[in-house]
């Protein structure tokens, strides 16, 4: 009797570590963040009093949050298409056979091997306006950290560099999976490279392209650590993003309630975008 009971309990016992972690570091913080955004919190995170949507009205009324929201959306708007075009272009160019092509491919995915914080330190030194290498290579005097437009551009460049390795690999392997027999037939029929791309390759790599699109939108909406390392939100808050402001409120000002409200806004935005894209996917993308 006892033995069968133990045998029945066995799978649950084996799953206990994973379930505990999921509860402790995913679901509990998720729900607590949402609930806490409706409270006044002490500096150690204890609930003091229920304030309803006060944190949100304070948030939406503050210039700092409006900047964060518009900067995050602007960054997403600049970054996502740039990243997609560059990665797809790189994959199209490198999708060949031979030694040189293989070297091209290795170079394109190597940025993946460099850790985010190391890469951002590299960028910070290379883009230093006075002694960095970039301004002298470009023969320009761009104030990368003092000019709001240049700082946003720098953040987009850094974002693309951080993502290119993985996105390139995904797209190049999708392109390689397009059957060569189909391409041959299209060529014999007289299709030019552009027609080949639009009517044959593009529909066949669409699922991968959609995956890259979704992950890059998600990455863009959540960008924070590169901001912290590269621009610290400046100049004049022009690169302060939502999650970066959440970090500032939570860890620099000890304002957990406002931080939780920002985190909740981030949850809603990311979920909304994913739902939208999934609906779009059901209608437009043809599967293999």
């Amino acid at each position: 009797m006892d033995k069968t009971k133990i045998a029945k309990a066995r799978p649950y016992i084996l799953l206990l570590p994973a379930l505990t972690l999921a509860f402790l570091f995913a679901y509990r913080p998720f729900f607590r963040t949402i609930v806490n955004s409706l409270y006044n919190l002490s500096i150690i995170g204890k609930r003091l009093s229920f304030v309803g949507f006060d944190n949100y009205s304070r948030l939406f009324g503050s210039g700092s949050f409006q900047d964060s929201l518009s900067n995050t959306l602007r960054f997403t708007l600049y970054f996502v298409p740039t990243n997609l075009i560059i990665c797809l272009g790189a994959a199209m160019l490198a999708n060949r056979k031979g030694k040189l092509a293989s070297l091209n491919q290795i170079f394109m995915f190597l940025p993946m091997a460099v850790a985010m914080s190391s890469s951002m330190m590299l960028f910070k030194m290379m883009f230093n306006p006075s002694i960095g290498i970039m301004n002298s290579l470009l023969k320009a005097d761009i104030q990368w950290f003092n000019d709001p437009k240049a700082a946003m551009l720098l953040l987009v460049i850094a974002g693309v560099w951080l993502d290119i390795g993985f996105d390139f690999l995904l797209l190049v392997s999708a392109l390689r999976n397009v059957p060569t027999s189909l391409i041959e037939v299209a060529r014999i029929e007289g299709a030019n490279p552009w027609q080949l791309f639009i009517s044959l390759q593009l529909p066949l790599i669409a699922p991968t392209l959609l995956f890259v699109l979704i992950t890059s939108i998600k990455d863009a909406m959540l960008i924070s650590a590169p901001v912290l390392l590269l621009t610290e939100g400046g100049p004049f808050r022009s690169t302060q993003t939502l999650v970066y402001q959440m970090y500032l409120e939570g860890f620099k000002s000890g304002n957990y309630a406002l931080g939780s409200a920002i985190a909740t806004v981030v949850f809603i935005l990311t979920f909304a975008i994913m739902l939208l894209l999934l609906r779009f996917e059901q209608r437009r993308v043809y599967y293999q």
Binding site: R28, T33, L222, M246, G250, Y256, A263, F267
Partner: peptide, 10 residues
């Protein structure tokens, strides 16, 4: 599906 960056504070 839960963005871990937004869970940092909790």
């Amino acid at each position: 599906l839960l963005p871990s960056d937004a869970l940092l504070i909790e």
